[in-house]
Write a protein that binds this DNA or RNA. Structure first.
Lengths: 234, 234
DNA sequence: CGGCCCGTTGATTACTGTCAACGTGGGTGG
DNA sequence: CCACCCACGTTGACAGTAATCAACGGGCCG
């Protein structure tokens, strides 16, 4: 696992591309003075573990670039991905509630993230209403996303689920996306790797998605047609 | 929909059976003085809607007794239950983030709940660290429960899912439970009403659960055997 | 160059969804 | 008070989908 660290300061935050969605979205200079422990920039390679379920957390992580999976393991060793986190999302929010990590976080792609000591959050939370507001927003986003996962990605046929995942990964207004490994797609949708592979292959044959590379990871989707499948059309 | 209301005061809270799990768990008398809008006691009959998805919320609801379902509706009209709330749980937390309700809340059983104006929460949150701490705890509980739903109730065979639901409804250390309608069981587990009915019937035949009434709602379960099925045993 | 991981595909089985019918208990209206 | 009706649970038959077991090819790393 490759990990690179370097300290971050206020000016880095000021020029951060995802500042607007981050926890520090509307902090002022006085707020920044309250940060008494270093925030580190973190680079992770695919498959790197950010944190493990059950560990006592000391950091929250703001994803700046890449995709992270939150995983729960079943008794039989199989995994279920409970949520996917992208730029602007926070991993390890539960540490701000003083709890151990609820799931294991693993990098799917190359990751750039900010590692923020939970003590910094606790201090800012009580002293800066601006951070507090962002924190509540993040709790709400996380909960809403979790509910979306149940409603969208855990209901209906494999075709419907895959279609909804494609739309989610592409993001509003975009038609290109990167798909995780077929195994991860299966773990997100609650289907087997084989069914995930078959369904992707079927979508390609049907012209619902087109390869953008030769490794079967980057795709362009026919948004309207995919939406039809997501809604229940065969 | 039958709704009964009456105002609640500090002494009611002091004697509340679920005070320990409630938002007001450790408020002191000074904190109670900050409550400047009335909190109402709410009684609801089964099928009553507590709030509807998309509505701008003005209240959060603490469930004192009964079971509430949080529902999302699909484009085709079918429903998916995203979470179940019982005594001590809060419905409508998202209003404290200033957002509309993310899902529709419907009573499954007779309900007793406290209806708390969101303005009261906002005021207490800034002025009472005790309430603030409880609020964070509630966000965390809700998020964790949502993740549990994905990992436990949306993975594996119908038998596994039902077994896990039974264990969850019984609660740690208990072996008796009330099951919602077969339609709701299906909507929780992401299976059809028929499969839910068949699987319940199979569990009864196999002696995994025993009727406690004649309407097929109250059961006693063989906890060890049900755990085995939940873990993957046939 | 060889091995290995990953994606793919085939064959078969098992499970769940679908469509349909029926009984029963509770509620309603006469 | 009784008859009717309806919602709900149940069960059957069958179709359709996904899981399982197995095999194979290609790209990447050592």
């Amino acid at each position: 696992m490759q990990v690179k660290l370097h300290a971050v300061n206020e000016s880095d935050c000021a020029s951060c591309g995802i500042r607007a969605q981050s926890l520090f979205a509307n902090l002022n200079s006085a707020d920044f003075q309250l940060i008494d422990q270093p925030i580190h920039d973190l680079a992770l390679a695919p498959q790197a573990t950010v944190f493990a379920e059950g560990a006592q957390g000391e950091y929250v992580f703001t994803v700046r670039k890449g995709l992270i999976k939150l995983v729960r393991y079943h008794a039989d060793g199989s995994q279920r991905i409970v949520r996917l986190l992208g730029p602007g999302d926070i991993a390890g929010l539960e540490t701000t509630a003083g709890a151990p990590y609820d799931s294991t976080a693993v990098a799917i792609t190359d990751i750039q993230a900010c590692r923020i000591p939970v003590a910094v959050i606790r201090r800012l939370e009580t002293e800066s209403p601006r951070l507090h507001q962002q924190l509540v927003r993040k709790w709400h986003e996380a909960l809403r996303t979790a509910d979306d996962f149940i409603a969208d990605l855990a209901s209906g046929s494999a075709r419907q689920r895959l279609a909804r995942l494609l739309l989610r990964l592409a993001g509003e207004g975009h038609d290109h996306l990167m798909l995780p490994s077929r195994e991860d797609v299966g773990a997100v949708l609650g289907i087997t790797t084989e069914t995930a592979s078959r369904t992707v292959a079927a979508f390609r044959r049907e012209g619902l998605m087109h390869d953008l590379d030769r490794q079967g990871r980057f795709f362009r989707i026919e948004t309207a047609a995919v939406q039809a499948v997501a809604g229940g059309e065969p």
